[in-house]
Design a protein around this nucleic acid. Structure first.
Lengths: 143, 143
DNA sequence: TTGCAATTTAGACTCATTCTAATTCCTAGG
DNA sequence: CCTAGGAATTAGAATGAGTCTAAATTGCAA
């Protein structure tokens, strides 16, 4: 699925802010991320990118994803030391990993909860990021 | 530093619960973890273990740590995809990683806060574990 | 003692990720 | 339209944490 004019503009500006340029590859990989937001690994992004962008290399997919993280439009998600996953959801959220399927779900994080967490820290700690991940079972078969 | 009789007994029972035996190596590695609770990596545990246990192998340190995790007396701590760290603190706690030094600090997690987090989940999610990690700067030079 | 199962060990292996060096692509200036 | 130069892309090599394998050792129970 191609990017909308709005999405393309957003990508362009975000990249520019850190001195990078939009390219065909970056646009395509970004569209892959937006199209199926299921926290894919690099390998999965690569597979998906190759249909629609013949011959795109794995190294390029690594580079593209890294540039998105650098300019702040994509987050990395790690569970233990499994392959890193990529998430274009910019709102503050936690992740829940279903042990049975391995699927990762976004869990909305209201600001007051974040504030509660920050208040746990002694004064000398100045947090820049908070990562919250749940691990467990998910009932039912809803998507 | 050697294990106290109490600690040795605790280790023995914990291992037995999952069908493992206490060994010289396991006791030594466990004492290393208890002596300096600074979330060491495997490599660091290995270095520390070799003074006091000549010739203990890296593979054994990996095995020992894995057996501790299996029987629930040690937790793994991961930041991004850096080498896994090991933590003998059993109380529910979060971690704060200081960007400047790389040091990891334990942050106490009161039960009510955990409950708040669990309540963020839709009914079909059944969490078994919650991981919380802060990342940021720490002021002052206190330990 | 002996036998046996668990543990330890060295070293080979895996695999996600990073690096390298060569090629290709844009684009601004002529 | 050309061309030069910097950025981006690429294939493949390198890295490094962690896992696996198969052989040696250990500790214990009969």
């Amino acid at each position: 699925m191609a990017l909308s004019a709005h999405q393309r503009e957003h990508l362009k500006e975000s990249l520019h802010r850190v001195g990078l340029k939009p390219t065909r590859q970056r646009e395509h990989v970004f569209s892959v991320l937006l199209t199926k937001r299921d926290h894919p690994t690099v390998e999965e992004v690569w597979q998906r990118s190759r249909t629609g962008f013949d011959g795109i290399s794995l190294a390029t997919v690594y580079n593209c994803l890294e540039s998105f993280v650098r300019c702040g439009i994509v987050r990395q998600v790690n569970y233990e030391r499994e392959p890193t996953r990529y998430c274009p959801n910019l709102a503050p959220h936690a992740h829940f990993k279903d042990a049975a399927t391995g699927r990762v779900y976004d869990i909305d994080l209201p600001e007051p909860v974040l504030e509660t967490l920050r208040r746990l820290l002694p004064r000398e700690f100045e947090p820049e990021a908070i990562e919250i991940s749940f691990h467990g079972k998910k009932a039912r078969a809803s998507r």
